[in-house]
Design a protein around this nucleic acid. Sequence first.
DNA 1: CACATATACAACTCATTGGCTATATATTCA
DNA 2: TGAATATATAGCCAATGAGTTGTATATGTG
Lengths: 120, 120
Amino acid sequence: MDREHFAPSTLSDAMLEQVAARFRLLGEPLRLRLLIALEDGEHTVGELVALTQSGQANVSKHLAALMQAGMLRRRKAGVSVYYAIADDSAFTLCDVVCAGLQQRLAAQVRAMGLSALTEN
Amino acid sequence: MDREHFAPSTLSDAMLEQVAARFRLLGEPLRLRLLIALEDGEHTVGELVALTQSGQANVSKHLAALMQAGMLRRRKAGVSVYYAIADDSAFTLCDVVCAGLQQRLAAQVRAMGLSALTEN
DNA sequence: CACATATACAACTCATTGGCTATATATTCA
DNA sequence: TGAATATATAGCCAATGAGTTGTATATGTG
């Protein structure tokens, strides 16, 4: 992987704030859980409430936030509302973060020596 | 790009919080500015204060946060402290976010019709 | 040693926001 | 129309965290 970034130095303050906002959006465990729950397809708010073990009002609020950011799409069917992922990039991000964390953990383990791995 | 994520469904609550924390870390404009400033190599705290136009204490605090997350490395030289990027993954993340935002912007422009582009 | 400089840290203020409760707004059905 | 269900929204509280000021802790210098 080379050092070719189109983002950084050319970012205006406004753009920077937008990028930060995007990250902040994914900085909430519940919102991540919602995205994860939606990974296998659309779900109603009620289903998401059950899946995430969180309050309905709270789930609604976070879904609204994800919607406004363009990460979800909405479909009304009768009395229910189905939400679905509209922007896969979130998962790409999660993958990178997870990879980074794994790398970091591995480094930590290495730093601690391998003994920790064998002493059950 | 296929649908192969190793993250989501297998994430424990603790891991989820870690992932969220990582995102939250990048959810601050000043921290992003610091990373951007460090893109071209290490800088002292003083330089970073000048580059980011922020207070010294604040910069120090955010540098500490990035350090603790393992994104930076520290080198003391005399009375100065040099910080540098230790984990390039942040830039990969930025790139993905920027790409996502660009896509979103493009879609918005398309939705508004092309007229907006020509009316100066 | 006294002094200046660079960085870190503590304490405070203030704005943001997650989660809650209560309520409003559909929509379906009897 | 009235009741039931699903979702959204408003208002509140508490926690978090960004930015500030002031100070502590090196480290170099005369």
